[in-house]
């Protein structure tokens, strides 16, 4: 694409890539992500009440303000209108428990925007996903706020055919705050848990808000796939690897596998956080390596560590390894002399 001006003057202009530019703007991409997040927000607002919306409002306002201030202070171009900070804020809120204290949420949002994003050069240059990193920082900063697991509102339980918890009623007290993954870890057989339909509709106890309603997450993820905002490679290889591994190591139990897929942050992480552009590999081959490694890491943490859930840790680990995956899966430019090694060119 050579501009009219240089064509007129018969001048050749030499430049490095990118030579082709997509007409899709950052604002449009982020707007589509916001639309994809909408079903999750609506579903969780229905299940937990208005507190979700309050958290999102506080986080979004903090994110916009801190992005504005940090870009002023660093004398960078203002990029608030690209909506990316609002997406970060909403994904962060969906990564936290429902009654997470607001002042801690504000600290977390400021950390996500200023430390994880702006300090590394802003949108597109951050090496780690802001929401995942901030979640891990908040877990180690305010561990007690994560200890309480979120209980769906009573009105959501009306849709459940297993009120309030038949299999567990005998040991209600000891299990009253445990999530499905914690229960599975402590050796409870899947038959004693809530039914899969409950997990699917979102009537489960969870640590984070966003993991509550599996069907809303799947809807949002499919919208992103349909709109070609994300490619299928990462989410499908990630979820597929966890499915295969939990089937193999769960004693070939279909139900055990489905519990591992539908509960916890796997679906939300696979569709919304692992696919972050700047923190995932560029090539399709690299994306599949990334997804499979994510699945293996998540399964290792879930089955053999003393944590019940490992989606955020595996995403952060793989974010750090992404440049190396990129280096090994680099596509050869057409016609390049194969004898010239990588190191000689760089």
């Amino acid at each position: 694409m050579i501009s009219a001006k240089s064509q007129e003057q018969n001048h050749l202009v030499i430049a490095s890539s990118p030579h082709l530019r997509s007409p899709r703007t950052t604002t449009a991409v982020m707007g589509n992500v916001l639309i994809a997040l909408l079903p999750i927000v609506i579903a969780t607002a229905f299940i937990y009440g208005c507190r979700v919306l309050l958290s999102i409002a506080v986080a979004a306002a903090t994110a916009i303000l801190s992005e504005l201030l940090v870009q002023k202070a660093m004398k960078k171009r203002q990029t608030i209108q690209d909506l990316s900070c609002i997406v970060t804020a909403i994904i962060l809120v969906l990564n936290l428990p429902i009654d997470f204290p607001l002042w801690q949420l504000i600290i977390g949002t400021i950390f996500a925007i200023i430390v994880v994003k702006a300090a590394f050069g802003g949108l597109g240059q951050n090496f780690a996903n802001p929401a995942v990193t901030t979640r891990i920082v908040l877990v180690s900063a305010f561990a007690s706020s994560f200890a309480k697991n979120t209980e769906p509102l009573a009105r959501a339980l009306l849709f459940s055919n297993s009120t309030p918890d038949p299999g567990l009623s005998a040991s209600m007290d000891s299990y009253s705050s445990a999530t499905v993954l914690v229960l599975l870890k402590s050796g409870v057989t899947p038959e004693k848990l809530r039914t899969l339909r409950d997990l699917f509709l979102g009537i489960q106890k969870t640590t984070a808000i966003g993991e509550t309603c599996a069907i809303a997450v799947i809807l949002g993820g499919l919208y992103l796939l349909f709109k070609k905002i994300i490619k299928w490679h990462i989410p499908f290889s990630y979820i597929g690897t966890v499915a295969v591994l939990s089937f193999l190591f769960g004693g070939f139990d279909m139900q055990f596998m489905l519990y591992h897929l539908l509960s916890g942050g796997l679906l939300f992480g696979a569709f919304f956080m692992a696919t972050d552009y700047s923190t995932s590999p560029l090539t399709n081959k690299g994306k599949i390596i990334y997804g499979i490694s994510l699945g293996i890491l998540t399964s290792i943490i879930r089955f053999w560590s003393n944590l019940p859930e490992g989606v955020s840790f595996s995403i952060l680990t793989m974010n750090i390894l992404t440049p190396h995956i990129d280096r090994f899966t680099k596509e050869k430019p057409f016609g390049e002399n194969q004898q010239i090694k990588d190191n000689d060119r760089c």
Partner: peptide, 26 residues
């Protein structure tokens, strides 16, 4: 000397002097 050098040191093939950061560059 035939190549005209724009004011800015970074030259883009589509004639834009400054990068269109508004557009997606993945």
């Amino acid at each position: 000397a035939n190549i005209e050098k724009p004011d800015d040191s970074v030259i883009y093939i589509d004639g834009n002097i400054k990068p269109d950061t508004e557009e997606e560059t993945i």
